[in-house]
């Protein structure tokens, strides 16, 4: 198809966004060494590489350390209420499908108070990218056990150790109907973080990324075993998934070729106990998207809304004999 006149004319306006164009005036107030910094950088790199206009990009969050991210992005942002990032993002996306929507949320925000929205957002499969910053703890409120905290974790709310086994966000997401993209990546391998984020961004539908995020203050050394022993990380590679660069391939020798369309294997991988699966566990671009299914035949202009309302009122209207509702509203 040939480009339209407006497309040609718009190409006259050259843009060259740099990372600095996505950095807000506010310096990130995350703790020193926090993995959130890596996630922010990966997002800004993606925006630059995709040349996303800041005015066409939206970051939506709930409450928590991770949810501070919209403040640090020079884009539209919505720092929402606890657990409610996804409904807000869905509202934005359905009203403005032209925007690139990112949702940043933490394990407490998503897997506890926001769990219902998380499940239905996966089911709705609207075209957006969700980043679950999973540090296994409530950090903003200075260490309380979250749904993903390991059993036995001593925290302010579990002084004798967390009682329950942790919730597995991957296996939960993979079990929801209409799931279309699930990936896991640690924040300490920036190249992979970027690659997975890029894959998620280009996926049509709801992309769920669980990011294993280090919290140096309240969960210090929690991920050290995986950070220091590359064999604890199982790299999931595939032509349609992650492709490791040679330098990473030399370090991370524990690799498995995994077809992202293989849901059964994805579920088995999500349940791995001793190893951390990293890469795209599941990706199916053919799952229908709610925003496309519900796309109206024509935009709801005030005139159309008024007409439809009047038509409904006319159904129960009482007209003098010999008259009826007319098309011009007389």
């Amino acid at each position: 198809m040939t480009a339209s006149m407006s497309q040609c004319l718009m190409q006259m306006v050259q843009t060259d966004y740099q990372i600095a164009d996505y950095q807000s005036d506010i310096t990130p107030r995350w703790c020193t060494g926090c993995g959130d910094n890596a996630i922010l950088t990966a997002m800004q790199r993606l925006c630059r590489d995709e040349q996303l206009p800041p005015e066409k990009t939206v970051c939506v969050s709930g409450i928590g350390c991770a949810s501070r991210l919209p403040h640090y992005m020079n884009a539209y942002g919505f720092h929402g209420i606890h657990g409610r990032a996804l409904p807000i993002a869905e509202g934005i996306k359905i009203r403005r499908p032209d925007l690139s929507v990112f949702v940043t949320t933490g394990d407490g925000d998503c897997c506890s108070i926001g769990a219902a929205h998380w499940i239905h957002a996966v089911r709705y499969n609207m075209n957006m990218t969700m980043l679950l910053h999973d540090n296994n703890v409530y950090g903003l409120t200075k260490k309380q056990a979250s749904p993903t905290s390991p059993k036995g974790l001593k925290s302010n709310t579990t002084p004798f150790g967390a009682t329950l086994n942790p919730l597995n966000p991957l296996s939960v997401t993979l079990g929801i109907s209409n799931v279309s993209f699930v990936a896991q990546v640690p924040d300490w391998i920036p190249e992979l973080l970027y690659d997975v984020l890029s894959k998620a961004y280009h996926h049509k539908g709801f992309s769920f990324i669980r990011i294993l995020q280090r919290c140096p203050n309240f969960m210090n050394h929690h991920f050290d075993a995986a950070v220091q022993d590359p064999l604890r990380v199982r790299m999931l590679t595939h032509a349609d998934g992650l492709r490791l660069k040679p330098e990473l391939s030399r370090i991370y020798k524990n690799q498995e070729t995994h077809d992202p369309l293989d849901l059964n294997r994805a579920q088995a991988l999500a349940m791995l106990d001793e190893e951390i699966p990293v890469g795209v566990l599941y990706s199916n671009p053919h799952v229908p998207c709610y925003d496309e299914l519900r796309k109206g035949k024509r935009p709801s202009t005030p005139q159309l809304v008024e007409t439809v309302l009047n038509e409904e009122f006319d159904k129960v209207g009482i007209w003098p004999e010999g008259q009826q509702a007319t098309s011009n509203g007389e």
């Binding site: 990372i19 020193t32 060494g33 926090c34 993995g35 890596a38 950088t41 300490w188």
Partner: peptide, 21 residues
């Protein structure tokens, strides 16, 4: 991972490249 720790020690000695690394 862009945690900024080194640059808080000395931002002349440590710099960030175009990818903020």
């Amino acid at each position: 991972t862009t945690c900024n720790e080194c640059r808080q020690i000395n931002d002349q000695l440590f710099g960030y490249n175009e990818n903020m690394q």
